[in-house]
């Protein structure tokens, strides 16, 4: 019977957030980012918007370390958040040596758009350095990328970081 109810519910809500990650991935908000033992990529973003007053437009309150006062992700946190939220995608695209996520990361790390492919091959060639074990965390992987880029003469010349 429960199965039927779920089907009916699906009809009722037209959209699927009911089933999936829920409405929880608000982007910013209380307890926004959990590194390490994150329960899964879509659950990275925790609380929903807190819309209790006008001083909290789009739910940004104190205690949110990743966003500015108007709810935009801070530039210096963008890389951390992006890698943590798209970790499995990046893992795959870096092994394959191309993809939108890996070129987006290149952009976050200051590479001009025409260097995206070069960054992707760098990641492919250094795959086992970036993902040293199957326990590698997003933070560690990003740190390894940053270190590796600094040592790579071409990338360090063309990308800002």
């Amino acid at each position: 019977m429960k199965k039927y109810l779920i089907v009916v519910m699906g009809m009722v809500f037209f959209s699927s957030p009911v089933f999936a990650a829920g409405y929880g991935e608000a982007g910013c908000g209380l307890g926004s980012l959990i590194f390490g033992d994150s329960p899964g990529p879509v659950q990275i973003f925790a609380a929903t918007t807190n819309a209790s007053s006008y001083s909290q437009l789009f739910g940004i309150t104190s205690g949110t370390s990743n966003c500015d006062a108007s709810g935009i992700i801070l530039a210096e946190k963008e890389g951390d958040l992006f890698v943590a939220s798209n970790f499995d995608h990046l893992e795959k695209e870096m092994a394959i040596g191309e993809g939108e996520h890996v070129s987006t990361l290149a952009g976050i790390l200051g590479c001009p758009s025409d260097r995206g492919a070069q960054f992707a091959s760098y990641a492919q060639n250094n795959y086992q350095v970036i993902f040293a074990s199957d326990q590698t965390t997003p933070e560690e992987a990003l740190q390894a990328v940053r270190t590796g880029m600094a040592q790579d003469p071409e990338l360090s010349a063309s990308c800002i970081h």
Partner: peptide
């Protein structure tokens, strides 16, 4: 309610 998300989410 309206909410903003990074599109990658």
């Amino acid at each position: 309610e309206f909410a903003l998300f990074p599109y990658y989410v």
